[in-house]
Design a protein around this nucleic acid. Structure first.
Lengths: 161, 161
DNA sequence: TATTGTTATACTCTATAACTATA
DNA sequence: TATAGTTATAGAGTATAACAATA
């Protein structure tokens, strides 16, 4: 079952990581799909909750994406009444974004879903092993500059505040 | 730097996993891009090497994708002269696929690139920590049915042989 | 003239359906 | 008629470029 012809002498940890990461992301996506959300929405929702009233430009900068991408994402969240755009009285070009009541409740619900997801995902590990795994992953992530951010592809690292 | 309002009391290991997995996949993709390959090609190349002469139908079944998808992927590899299609004399509808000389050499090169990639990725860990990480990930992957396979999205698990 | 947000357009990857040739 | 492979078509997601309103 182990199709070789590959330096499989060493453990293919980097591959396992990519494989399991994709698996985790897929399973999480399945769990939030009934909430009418995709993973990319969760990252944005979390960030907006932590930076209430940020402008779309600021969001784009924080996530390292084009402003036009933010328009689409905020559109999707606003259509679901999870965030709301407000005119900035100081600069009428700018639109500040913040969570609605419904957005707050949704974020809480997503948090519960995430915990269930994580419990399932790591069910094979003991409490202690889970802690060790978390620590090792945290170490690697920090060394690679992925501190508190969001997925590459979906976003970039937290740029402060 | 840790934007909360989330049950961050527990470590978000599942998130770290998805984040790091995407990061690992992206970095690997960058490394093989100069070889004119994408990650999806590597999984296929490896599988074909381990199952020489398999038909496209068998490939599709092993990877859990539509036959039309296999056509495209094998086209891409054949255009690079890494694999070759052959008429099955027994059933002239069927096309058996196998690596070319060039494909063999490419696979070896990809293996070297992978090892360099992995070394970089896990540079923050000691030898022993790397081993522990590999073991824990292997445990989780096995429990989740991701034995020796390839990425979800790109493919499915090895179906034997 | 520069900047914020928006809209329009195109490109990549993938999935589905229709088609050809064998069996 | 069923099956292996192929081609055609359409969809999701993202990136780039052109644009309108405001500064």
């Amino acid at each position: 079952m182990n199709y070789t012809r590959w330096p499989i002498v060493v453990r293919m940890t980097a591959f396992l990581l990519a494989q399991l990461g994709a698996h985790a992301a897929d399973r999480f996506a399945e769990r939030i799909a009934p909430l009418d959300l995709a993973p990319r929405h969760v990252g944005l929702l979390r960030w907006i909750a932590a930076h209430p009233g940020a402008s779309q430009r600021e969001i784009a900068a924080a996530f390292g994406v084009q402003p036009s991408r933010v328009v689409v994402l905020v559109d999707e969240l606003e259509r679901r009444d999870l965030v709301q755009r407000h005119q900035d009285p100081g600069d009428r070009r700018s639109r500040s974004v913040r969570l609605t009541e419904r957005g707050e409740r949704m974020l809480a619900e997503v948090g519960r879903v995430f915990l269930a997801h994580q419990a399932d995902l790591l069910a094979a590990l003991t409490e202690e092993e889970s802690a060790v795994l978390g620590e090792l992953l945290g170490k690697v992530a920090a060394a690679r500059g992925l501190t508190d951010g969001v997925h590459p592809g979906h976003a970039a690292a937290d740029s402060g505040a």
